[in-house]
């Protein structure tokens, strides 16, 4: 038993995500799963936090994403990239959460509750002067709010392309959309962001969000 575990551990250093996931799928391989979690929990966490604009809930959803990966391991198709599948699972959870929020009208760009404060704390870099840290926090907060006011289909593309550095082709695979659609969404996302963030130069608050044109979509996992 132990020999087998050591063997699989050693082999893990050489396996691809797809191979690891295949082992989770076929053998409920705990090491392979741990390997995937370790490698992907940072990116998934960032995606969820940026999609939700909320660090605490984002972290919850990141964990939930891995729980779901395990729950749906039998549905994983080995011909696809593991990352694509995982991004899609995480994004779907984010969409669900955003929909729930809107239903309960909990989303508030003016929130100053502990969650936002907690988020702001995380921007503080201990090594820099307090006033500079404050400026950085404010700028980060502006970006967070601007992103949150972006329709979520644009936000998803923007987060994956800009922050996670996925190629348009990869994003298209995640979203199940033509590459051209992803590109035009990214162009629109950046254009909207530049407009939303422009007022910050003039020290004005970002413009009002348009809820009416908020587009929704659902992904099939």
């Amino acid at each position: 038993m132990m020999g087998k575990l050591k063997e699989s551990l050693a082999a893990l250093f050489a396996v691809s995500d797809e191979q690891a996931m295949r082992r989770v799928q076929m053998h409920d391989d705990e090491r392979a799963f741990a390997h995937l979690v370790k490698k992907w929990q940072g990116p998934v966490r960032r995606l969820c936090i940026r999609m939700l604009g909320d660090e605490h809930r984002g972290e919850d959803l990141a964990q939930e994403s891995f729980a779901r990966v395990f729950a749906q391991r039998k549905h994983y198709r080995p011909d696809g990239k593991f990352g694509t599948w995982l991004w899609r699972i995480a994004l779907n959870l984010c969409y669900d959460e955003l929909r729930r929020r809107q239903r309960w009208k909990q989303v508030s760009l003016d929130s100053t509750d502990s969650e936002t404060l907690g988020l702001l704390e995380s921007f503080a870099e201990p090594q820099i002067a307090p006033d500079q840290a404050l400026v950085n926090q404010e700028r980060a907060e502006l970006v967070r709010r601007a992103l949150l006011s972006l329709p979520e289909i644009y936000r998803a593309v923007l987060v994956l392309r800009h922050y996670e550095n996925l190629k348009f082709r990869e994003i298209a695979a995640v979203l199940g959309l033509p590459e051209g659609t992803v590109k035009s969404r990214m162009a629109e996302a950046l254009t909207q962001m530049s407009q939303l963030l422009k007022p910050k130069v003039a020290a004005e608050p970002p413009g009002p969000q348009k809820n009416s044109n908020r587009m929704k979509e659902s992904l099939i996992v």
Binding site: I49, R50, A140, R144, L147, Y163, M193, S194, L197
Partner: peptide, 10 residues
């Protein structure tokens, strides 16, 4: 916009 986006570090 791309430069501004980098202000939100994680």
């Amino acid at each position: 916009a791309r430069t501004d986006l980098n202000a939100w570090k994680m």
